[in-house]
Design a protein around this nucleic acid. Structure first.
Lengths: 256, 256
DNA sequence: ATATCAATTATCATATATGATACTAAATAT
DNA sequence: ATATTTAGTATCATATATGATAATTGATAT
């Protein structure tokens, strides 16, 4: 095996700049950076311009000093919360799987789609939501989607729903806007959402919201099951169960 | 004014890659990235190699998927805590300045040096610690340095002190190791550190530690004054005052 | 076993990002 | 007022980073 070493000088230099700035507690001037790193003046100017433009570093004032940029806080938090949700939720998902014997799903929002980020398969042996990483745009057909919709401002919700409409996926899908709004009120009231074969015939779900330390919606945890082992009369029992677990996960995330 | 637009394609592409990965909740494969961005295959390979090597992104498994890397958490937290310390401390520094009329200093560790990150000048009109951003390697001559030394493991402390020794800066500087250790015990006992003309003749300081949300030492807040308005009998009063304020700042930082 | 697809490596001509040089402008010091 | 330092702009020849192309390797499916 030949180990080829790749080089992208411009990129490597930019990362050196970031590291240099990060390693100092105080802000750095242009010439401090210039003298610390072996980068020719015009190249450094270009790199700093790009990094500043993209928010990775910030300049204080017009002829000011350079420091790390807010974008890094954004990126760092983004990763941290992603990792945190999965790791915090896992033991609770296992607990719930053991208690109910059903499929437990952890989902979250990826841009404008719902995405399954973790799953423990139940002993029914039925794969219900397809695989981890799969995404769904049909919020109105999914319990997790209802949770997200219920958390939006009414305006925003309208926008989102107008884009894709309320297409009928199964004969149980809610296709009427007013009916959906009524359903969402129930979601808010209960603190969990229910899905009765609206995405796929023969499958029911109950799902509850997980909050992060900023009070935002971090994701959803849910129980999924074929209808033959998820009678309608279990709905409330299972709903309260996910809700309770979701609250535990939320506090594990640092909520409240 | 001519507005020249600079370009560093390699860097801009790398940042596009990071943005793309950040914008997705799930991890991305090589070809997903390739298809989403207009980057030729070999170039993308090189960029991913560098980004991975520097920890900005991580590959899950050998032929795995790409996600954001831990380095971003480090960078984000680094900036966040820097900003936080200053912003949280400021109102308390003002309070202390008003109460005492003296110079208030906020300092922290920058690599292996003490650095002054913020300052409110007192009404004595004497500039005591030089300017914001200035750094000092002589921990044993500064109250803030004593705080940091007192928080180190004894081993680590020995290493640090051996590097620069205990040079005499003024005739009051502590140059004996045993005497310094005794002084540090007092610092621990009191919860604040005192500096009596050990860095500069005619200047006294009292300084207390600020902790962050992880229980780590985030920085120090201190009162500095010329000796003529800082009698030795004020030592305890001022010491308790900074300590109290430091505790408030710590809880503002999320400590405990 | 075979085929297919995805990820990565290898090569090298050339388009182009870079850097030597010089200049301007603003701030700070003397 | 004058000199000095620092930040940033402008130009352009050329060293070199890049990308078209293709081979290789490992997974996954059939």
């Amino acid at each position: 095996m030949t180990t080829t070493i790749y080089h992208v000088p411009a990129l490597e230099r930019a990362l050196d700049v970031i590291d240099l700035i990060a390693s100092h507690e105080s802000d750095l001037s242009f010439s401090e950076i210039l003298n610390s790193l072996n980068i020719p003046r015009p190249s450094l100017v270009r790199i700093l311009k790009i990094l500043t433009g993209r928010g990775l570093i910030t300049k204080t004032g017009d002829r000011g000093l350079y420091r790390l940029g807010m974008k890094l806080i954004y990126l760092g938090n983004r990763l941290e919360s992603k990792l945190k949700l999965k790791s915090v939720a896992l033991p609770f998902m296992q607990e719930l799987a053991l208690k109910t014997g059903k499929t437990i799903e952890l989902s979250t929002l990826d841009r404008d789609q719902l995405i399954l980020i973790d799953q423990i398969e139940g002993n029914e042996g039925v794969r219900l939501f397809s695989r981890i990483g799969s995404a769904y745009p049909y919020f109105h057909t999914l319990a997790a989607g209802k949770i997200y919709l219920a958390h939006m401002e009414k305006e925003k919700r309208k926008d989102v729903l107008q884009k894709i409409g309320l297409p009928m996926v199964t004969k149980y899908t809610i296709t009427d806007m007013d009916q959906l709004e009524a359903e969402l009120s129930i979601v808010v009231k209960n603190g969990y959402a229910f899905e009765d074969q609206e995405l796929r015939e023969g499958v029911r779900r109950v799902v509850a919201p997980i909050y992060d330390c900023h009070g935002g919606l971090a994701g959803c945890i849910g129980i999924a099951s074929p209808i033959f082992s998820f009678e309608l009369e279990n709905r409330k029992y299972l709903g309260e169960a996910v809700k309770e677990v979701a609250e535990k996960i939320s506090s594990g995330m640092g909520a409240e």
